[in-house]
Computed example of a mutant assay.
Amino acid sequence: MALLLRLCTIAAFAIIIAAPSAHACSRDTACKVANGTYFIALPEASRRPPPAIMFLHGYGGSGKGTFRNRALIDALLERGYAVIAPDGSRRPDRDALSWSFHPKFPQMRDESAFLVSVRDAAIAEHGLDPDRIILSGFSVGGSMVSYLACARPDAFDAYAPVGGNFWRPHPTKCAGPVRMLHTHGWTDGTVPLEGRVLRGADSRDPNALIQGDIFHAMDIWRQTNACHFLKADGFDTDGPFWHRRWERCAPESALELALFPGGHRVPADWADMAINWFEAL
Rank of each mutant, 00 (worst) to 15 (best):
P106Y: 02
S253T: 08
D74H: 14
R109A: 01
G60R: 04
P261Q: 10
P86D: 08
P51Q: 08
V145K: 06
A149Y: 02
G176S: 09
T66W: 05
A151P: 10
D205E: 14
G80K: 02
S21V: 09
A158M: 08
R199D: 15
T224F: 01
P106R: 03
W242N: 14
D188P: 05
G36N: 07
R47D: 04
K231T: 11
K173A: 08
I84M: 11
S26V: 07
P177G: 06
I214C: 01
L193N: 10
T190Y: 05
C150L: 08
H182A: 13
N69W: 04
W221N: 10
L5K: 09
P169I: 05
F55I: 08
D157K: 05
N69P: 06
I84S: 12
P240M: 01
H184F: 12
G200C: 11
V116K: 00
A122R: 04
R204G: 07
H184C: 07
K173D: 01
P161N: 08
P171I: 00
W270L: 14
D110N: 11
P92W: 03
F138Y: 11
D205C: 09
R68D: 13
S143G: 13
A41R: 05
W167A: 14
C25D: 08
F235D: 07
H216P: 04
G185N: 11
M1H: 03
I15D: 10
L148I: 15
D87W: 03
A41D: 02
D93C: 12
Y147Q: 09
S100E: 02
D154M: 11
A30M: 03
Q223F: 06
C8R: 02
Y59K: 06
I84H: 04
I214G: 04
S98P: 03
H102M: 03
I10F: 01
F229A: 14
N35P: 01
R90P: 07
L77T: 01
R48F: 00
V116Y: 04
T66V: 15
I17Q: 09
N276T: 15
S136H: 01
I84L: 14
C31Y: 03
F67I: 04
R152A: 15
D93M: 02
K32Y: 04
F39D: 09
A34M: 13
F235I: 14
E44I: 00
W242Y: 11
R244Q: 12
E44P: 00
W277G: 14
A2M: 02
G164S: 05
W277V: 14
A201G: 12
R70Y: 10
W99G: 15
G63S: 10
P130F: 06
D238C: 07
F55Q: 04
R196Q: 15
V83M: 07
I214A: 04
F278G: 13
P177Q: 05
W99E: 14
M54P: 00
E256F: 01
D269M: 14
F241L: 07
D205T: 13
S117Q: 05
A155N: 07
T237D: 15
R109I: 03
C249F: 05
D74W: 09
A258M: 08
H170Q: 11
A217K: 03
L3F: 01
V197D: 07
S203Q: 06
I220S: 14
I15P: 12
G239T: 08
I210M: 13
D93H: 05
F114S: 01
